[in-house]
């Protein structure tokens, strides 16, 4: 039996094709845009070709675009999907920290992987992938290099503004004062981690923490989160696909019925 999970995020579209609720057949990820449907269809072609034409029995959509996904049998919130996907990828995970393009969230899981409680960022881009994107532009450093660059820092500067817009001008004035890019980026990671951990502390942060979402690919943020929380944090494989994976697992539940 084959099921499909589609995560229509603010920045990217992710799909996961799953066999029998246990084995990932294919994943795809594409930059989203105004025409979400076309991007999604490209993603689908990609995963379907890996399944040599086999079509899914059930489809579940999640993410900001989930409601407008016509091909889905059901839409489920990204909180439930991230919780489900993270628990599947990292057995025993009890806290999920997800940092995506435009939101960040912390999810508490019970010992059998059910969502107990969650918090999400509010009307502010600080503590999201967008924050780092803006800073990457200001610093003229590729976002994918942020993790490695921050490794070379000899210290992390303090970024006192939590607001993305003000933090950007702070970064610009730090550059004018000839502060190194490495130290600034380390400082930005510390700022985003402080913000996210403060939010996650509204719940209890357990010992088994899974870090998911696009920003989880940045090892600098992971280290900063560890130092802000005092916990060892694990990034499951394919952290960007966790939501889509959770959706595919929910689709499998439906297909079994």
């Amino acid at each position: 039996m084959i099921t499909l999970g589609i995560d229509l995020g603010s920045n990217t579209v992710k799909t996961v094709l799953l066999r029998d609720g246990s084995q990932v057949i294919a994943r795809s990820l594409r930059k989203g845009g105004h025409d979400m449907e076309t991007v999604m269809n490209e993603c689908l072609e990609e995963v379907y070709s890996a399944a040599s034409g086999e079509k899914p029995d059930k489809i579940v959509a999640t993410g900001y675009g989930r409601v407008s996904c016509k091909i889905a049998d059901k839409e489920i919130s990204e909180i439930s999907c991230h919780g489900r996907g993270a628990y599947f990828s990292m057995q025993g995970a009890r806290t999920v920290i997800d940092i995506g393009g435009q939101d960040s969230k912390a999810i508490s899981l019970s010992d059998n992987g059910k969502v107990i409680d969650f918090v999400m960022n509010d009307k502010c881009a600080a503590g999201t992938g967008r924050f780092l994107e803006v800073m990457a532009q200001a610093l003229q450093v590729q976002l994918v290099d942020f993790g490695d660059v921050s490794l070379k820092a000899d210290r992390s500067v303090d970024i006192s503004n939590t607001c993305t817009v003000f933090a950007e001008s702070e970064v610009i004035s730090l550059m004018a004062r000839r502060e190194s890019k490495e130290n600034i980026i380390a400082g930005l990671h510390k700022a985003i981690a402080a913000r996210v951990i403060a939010m996650a502390k509204r719940l209890r942060i357990e010992d088994e923490v899974a870090f998911t979402g696009g920003v989880a690919l940045n090892s600098g943020v992971k280290r900063a989160l560890e130092s802000a929380s005092g916990k060892s944090i694990k990034t499951p494989d394919h952290p960007q696909h966790i939501g889509a994976l959770g959706a595919a697992l929910f689709a499998f539940d439906m297909a079994k019925e």
Partner: peptide, 19 residues
Amino acid sequence: SDEQIATRIQAFIETLKER
């Protein structure tokens, strides 16, 4: 924000259902 509130409510209802 409509979208943010809708997502939170949906997720909350999903956890209630699960419970």
